[in-house]
Simulated scan of single mutants.
Amino acid sequence: MTPSEALRRTFAVVLVAMVAASCSTRPGPGSLKTSDAPEHGAQNHTILIATTRERASEPATYFNGERANRTNYAVATVSVPPSHKPGKIEWPAVPPGDPAKDFTLRSAGYLEGRQAFKAALEGELAKRKPADREAFVFVHGYNTRFSEALYRFTQVAHDSRARVVPILFTWASRGSVTDYVYDMNSAQIARDALEQTLRDIAATGVKRINILAHSMGAYLLAETFRQISISNNPIPADRFGFVALAAPDIDIDLFKQQLKRTGKPKKPFLILVSKDDKALKASSLLAGGKQRVGRYENTEELAALGAIVIDLTQISGENAVNHDKFAQIARIAPEIGETLLRARLGENAGAPSATGGKLGDIVGRGTNLVLTVPKTILSAPVQVLSGQ
């Protein structure tokens, strides 16, 4: 077998695994029906939305996977059932679902333009205490439908117990494994819209902007940050809180070049990696064998580039692709943050959990940190830093 034949065979195997994972029941057009049934202890989350997706003509869909010629805006409220299991989305078998056991759309509607979006954000900020007036922006990855992005972000926001205002930036992914190139081009097209959205958020009374970008969304965010940094009007660094790149689908050489052009961030990026990520393995094969940042084996080098690396390799994924592990650790995000802060300050970071283990092994100090999250941590109680 020639090297090229071996490469094609490996890519085929990985693609089959990705298709198998994506062929489980997925929400299609018409899945976003609203429910006014009693909530039965469910918790509501209001999500502001900015998108380069086209408005959908189908009812109960809102946005499709095609590219709009302008940025669209919306707001949605999604309830999470009291029986929710961290890291999971309890999809309704039949929309709109039962709020007692399913994620359920309670309300949704379009916002007409940037000013309406900013006014809605100001309204959400005003509902919170001054200390909680922060934004949490989520940028999804490749092969993601609008409903999937909305419900996934709701799950992450809920599990992380964040009191900040959640904002979904959703670009025109078609939600199909075979549309990788279309999705990549859509992500590139969305750079200006994401930049404008971040500027609009910064122009409100928001205290800080926190960002989580997944997979190809991390590529979009890194490109947008580069674009902002070389503009004549960069956004001040102190307007940002944490910036996390989860399983970033970025060529490692391109990432190095991006950082070289923008300089080391004043606040290091959080990069969530997993060396068994099959989606990024397929992406690497498509890119001529170049490693992707989210699967990069030299985590210490990533840390030296100005990142804090959280290695999730030991955690088992929800499916065979291992590309969405970030969603499983949302509930321990505050504990991870506290552990990393103490490590950067040179304090003891080996915080014991209630099971007697550690939150993770840390290599390095200061900004050059690598935290390896053990597979046992997800079975531990949420209060992994209790007793400290």
Rank of each mutant, 00 (worst) to 15 (best):
G175K: 06
R67A: 13
K129C: 00
E5F: 09
L305C: 04
R365N: 12
Y180G: 02
A279Q: 04
S283A: 15
P265Q: 05
D277N: 14
G360I: 03
R8F: 04
L286R: 15
P81D: 06
V373W: 06
P92K: 07
I329N: 08
E112V: 09
I250M: 03
L280S: 07
Q328G: 10
A244Q: 03
P265C: 03
S283Q: 02
L150M: 14
S57D: 15
D179V: 02
G123V: 08
R365G: 11
R67M: 15
D238G: 00
I228T: 02
V382A: 09
A74V: 13
R295E: 06
T224S: 02
S215L: 00
A237I: 03
Q328N: 07
V139E: 00
P268F: 09
A68Y: 08
K207F: 00
T52P: 10
S231I: 04
N348P: 09
T77L: 04
L345D: 09
T313H: 05
T367W: 08
E58S: 15
T61R: 11
V94W: 01
P352R: 12
V273L: 02
L285S: 08
D179F: 03
L378G: 06
F63P: 05
G41M: 12
F255E: 01
H214C: 00
I167E: 07
A330K: 09
P334S: 12
D311M: 06
D102R: 04
Q115M: 07
K281C: 04
T299M: 02
T355Y: 08
S231A: 05
F63W: 06
D192Q: 14
A37R: 15
E58D: 14
K127Q: 15
G350L: 13
A12W: 03
F242Q: 04
S231M: 01
I228K: 01
A237G: 02
R331F: 15
A120W: 10
P352V: 06
K278Q: 11
A193D: 14
A100E: 11
I167H: 10
R106P: 05
T25G: 10
S57T: 14
V321T: 15
F225D: 00
P99H: 03
D253P: 00
V19R: 14
L385W: 01
I329S: 05
L259G: 01
L48K: 11
I209S: 04
L285I: 15
E90M: 07
C23R: 12
H40P: 01
N232T: 05
D253R: 09
A17P: 03
T51W: 09
A56I: 15
P3T: 10
A162W: 14
E300D: 14
A157G: 04
L286W: 04
K256E: 13
G346K: 07
R191C: 06
A100L: 06
A120M: 06
G217L: 00
E112T: 14
S173G: 02
F269M: 01
